Amino acid sequence: MGDPDADTKQMKAFLAAEIIAALNRRHLTVRAAAEVTGVSRRIFRTSATPILPSLPSIGLCGC
């Protein structure tokens, strides 16, 4: 609502959700997901629910 970057943020959130879905379909461990994505294992471990809440800390979503 009035955010000039709303389209970009929405696209990043959608892309992040697609990446997470792909990792989940592959049934990757935290270590394997970190190796495949190049993202720190800490980011994957810190989220009890889906990884989405951690995304702003890895720069995929500026929400």
Rank of each mutant, 00 (worst) to 15 (best):
R31P: 00
T37R: 03
A13I: 15
F44P: 09
I51R: 06
M11H: 13
R26P: 05
I20Q: 02
L52N: 07
F14G: 04
P56C: 07
L15M: 13
G38N: 08
A48K: 15
I43Q: 06
H27T: 13
M1W: 07
S40C: 08
A34M: 08
I20W: 00
D5M: 14
A34W: 05
T8N: 07
I20S: 01
F44Q: 07
A33S: 13
L55S: 10
C63H: 14
K12P: 10
A32S: 14
D7I: 15
E35P: 06
S47V: 12
A13G: 00
R31T: 12
E18M: 11
K12L: 14
R41C: 04
V39W: 00
P56Y: 03
S54F: 01
L23V: 11
E35R: 15
V30T: 15
T29S: 12
F14W: 06
G62Y: 09
I19Q: 01
R41M: 10
I51N: 06
A13M: 15
F14A: 09
L15K: 13
F14P: 01
R26W: 02
A13S: 05
M11P: 04
A32F: 00
G2E: 05
F14H: 05
D7F: 04
H27D: 05
R26I: 12
P53M: 04
L23M: 07
D7C: 08
A48I: 14
I51E: 03
A32V: 15
V39D: 00
F14L: 13
S54Y: 00
A6L: 06
S47T: 14
Q10S: 08
A6H: 01
S40M: 12
A22D: 03
R42V: 09
A48G: 08
M1K: 12
